[in-house]
Design a protein around this nucleic acid. Structure first.
Length: 309
DNA sequence: GGCCAGGTTCGCT
DNA sequence: AGCGAACATGGC
């Protein structure tokens, strides 16, 4: 393979301790070497970022410890990529600024959470590179098993994402709204989306690409307002919106009480063993407010473990 | 082979 | 407002 022309910029950064690099990177990739546009292998977390100019490859490795964390972040730019922007996004991908302290203080006294914060100490909340990425991934995940969702996400990235070869390895970025906006329903059906999901994703991509919908702006508004805007989109309900608060918008108190896996986990950990209803899960979760984004993340860390909840 | 997965919308009462 | 059906695919 022939590498594209490139320049490299390396910076060090210190996440807020405690920070477990392996746990956090593994959570971002669902324990896989590759998950959609994210790669985590040989102790390096990497992701090709595409903002419409030339893509930039971010590579992050740990050069510290859980209690004295330090990261080395390299940005490899092909052509005229925006290196400063890539460095800025890189830290957010693994939630380096995420301060676990207040959550841990609350969770220590909680019968459900206290074992989880010990088991997953140093897990930060990963963030998608763009709100669009989080939104599309969430829509693809609706109703189906995580196995099927993975097939859909990988298929979408492979079909519509920009690819660059760097140091002999091919990386693919999450597709830009423009790329999906230009697609048709049939091409998304070909990668196994239902006609309905295909329609929703194309509609949202077109709104984002045209500028009618400014998803990034949702990072700067209150959670209730962001939820209202998201739910107004066809294909987005309460479950999807709450996951976006957690995974894309950086809100502290998101809670997807409609989530079946979460309801099952809470039934086992805090109930009679049977799955909680959505209303029961929501009611129980109030004691974790305003740290429910963290609570959700730690519950899912347990859920996703082999043989987990 | 049928049923269920990390839901949502649409069309009926 | 509330309820049921349809949706697509992979695993058990």
């Amino acid at each position: 393979m022939i590498d594209d022309a490139q320049s490299i910029s390396i910076e060090r950064s210190a996440p807020v301790a405690p920070f477990d690099f392996d746990l956090t990177a593994s959570f971002a990739t669902r324990g896989l070497e590759r998950h959609a546009a994210d790669v985590y292998e040989s102790e390096v977390y990497s992701k090709l970022l595409d903002y419409g100019e030339e893509p930039a490859l971010v590579r992050i490795k740990s050069i510290g410890t859980i209690d004295a964390p330090e990261l080395e972040v390299s940005v490899t730019a092909t052509g005229g990529a925006d290196i400063a922007r890539a460095h800025n996004v890189a830290g957010k991908l693994l939630g380096v600024d995420d301060d676990l302290g207040p959550f841990y203080s609350m969770a220590e006294a909680d019968t459900v959470l206290s074992p989880l914060i010990r088991e997953f100490r140093g897990l930060h909340i990963p963030r998608t590179a763009t709100v669009f990425e989080g939104l599309v991934k969430s829509i693809l995940s609706q109703q189906i098993s995580s196995q099927v969702a993975r097939v859909l996400r990988d298929g979408l990235v492979d079909a519509f994402g920009a690819t660059r070869t760097i140091d002999g390895t091919a990386y693919t970025a999450f597709p830009l709204p423009e790329a999906i906006a230009a697609a048709n329903v049939e091409s998304l059906r070909a990668i196994k989306l239902s006609e309905r999901k295909a329609t929703y994703v194309i509609e949202i991509a077109r709104a984002a690409a045209s500028g009618d919908l400014d998803l990034e702006a949702l990072k700067n508004v209150p959670a209730s307002e962001a939820t209202e805007s998201l739910v107004a989109l066809r294909g987005v309900g309460a479950w999807t919106a709450s996951w976006l608060l957690i995974q894309a918008l950086g809100q502290p108190d998101g809670f997807p009480h409609g989530d079946l896996a979460l309801q099952r986990a809470m039934g086992k950990l805090a109930g009679d063993g049977q799955r909680m209803t959505a209303a029961e899960a929501l009611e129980y979760s109030r004691r974790w407010s305003p740290y429910r984004s963290h609570a959700t993340t730690y519950l899912f860390a347990a859920i996703r473990q082999p043989g987990g909840l």
